[in-house]
């Protein structure tokens, strides 16, 4: 489904990703761990097409298409979803309205029929129930005045409604207390399916107790230096990232 080969990317002239390769198959959950500055957030931003991230070498193929050639909205329509580390506030734009516009824009791009506001509202209500989000949140402006936890839950809620094929969770656990973390994880787990893949980017192993990955990769200095199953996360937790340095040559980056 997703094939990243030898990806190099620069931000403000500085090379952050230095030859990252990774393959994700349908239904798999991959965790990307790594110390600060390893390039974790850069990966999410490059995959979703943010300006200012310059790909200098390598390729990203998503379901057979060159993902990097697509505009951000086209990537979304193709089923790529980024749950932001810091979701931005958009004053005055109603949360429900925003989500319906996004939902219908994606459907339109895929040649599917759009939902009218009644149909959409019905859909939202169902999803709200599953996600345990109060509908009061839906009447407010996008992320405006949301607490950190509310913002993250809102991201997962958007994911539930938009039903992407590939979801990238960028440090979704950062700034969450244990209860919020559990809620968000439950939301994510409810969305796991054989067709849907996840890239879970995190600094801490803690999140992976709740969202159990099929594969764990360690990203350091712009490359994947170690891959393994979920036990790798525990090793890291135990020994810290410094342990990797002594752990020998960067591993082949195949999952």
């Amino acid at each position: 489904m997703l094939k990243i080969e030898n990806l190099h990317a620069r931000v403000e002239g500085k090379e952050i990703l230095k030859g990252l390769s990774l393959t994700v198959n349908p239904g798999e959950v991959h965790a990307i761990m790594g110390p600060n500055g390893a390039g974790k957030s850069t990966l999410g931003n490059v995959l979703s097409g943010r300006d200012g991230y310059e790909v200098t070498a390598g390729s990203v193929t998503y379901n057979g298409v060159d993902l990097l050639a697509l505009e951000p909205e086209a990537r979304a329509a193709a089923g790529v979803f980024l749950a932001f580390q810091y979701p931005v506030e958009i004053p005055g734009v109603n949360n429900t309205y925003f989500l319906r516009t996004a939902f219908n824009a994606q459907r339109k791009a895929r040649g599917e029929t759009e939902l009218d506001s009644m149909q959409f509202l019905k859909l939202v209500r169902e999803k709200l129930k599953v996600m345990q989000i109060s509908d009061e949140l839906m009447h407010r402006a996008v992320n405006e005045g949301f607490s950190g936890g509310e913002k993250k839950r809102n991201e997962i809620f958007q994911m539930a409604v938009l039903e992407p094929k590939l979801a990238i969770l960028d440090e979704t656990d950062s700034g969450l207390d244990i209860d919020a973390l559990k809620q968000v994880s439950e939301g994510v787990n409810a969305l796991r399916s054989p067709e849907r893949s996840f890239l879970v980017v995190t600094h801490y192993q803690r999140l992976l107790d709740y969202i159990v990955p099929d594969f764990v990769h360690v990203l350091a200095d712009g490359r994947i230096v170690e891959s393994g199953d979920k036990t790798l996360a525990h090793k890291l937790e135990e020994h810290g990232y410094a342990w990797l340095a002594q752990h020998g040559e960067p591993a082949g980056a195949q999952a």
Partner: peptide
């Protein structure tokens, strides 16, 4: 803000009007 909207599938012009 613009990128947030676009990453949810909303085109640039629509995102700006929104």
């Amino acid at each position: 803000q613009l990128f947030y909207c676009r990453s949810r599938g909303i085109g640039e012009e629509d995102a700006v009007s929104m």
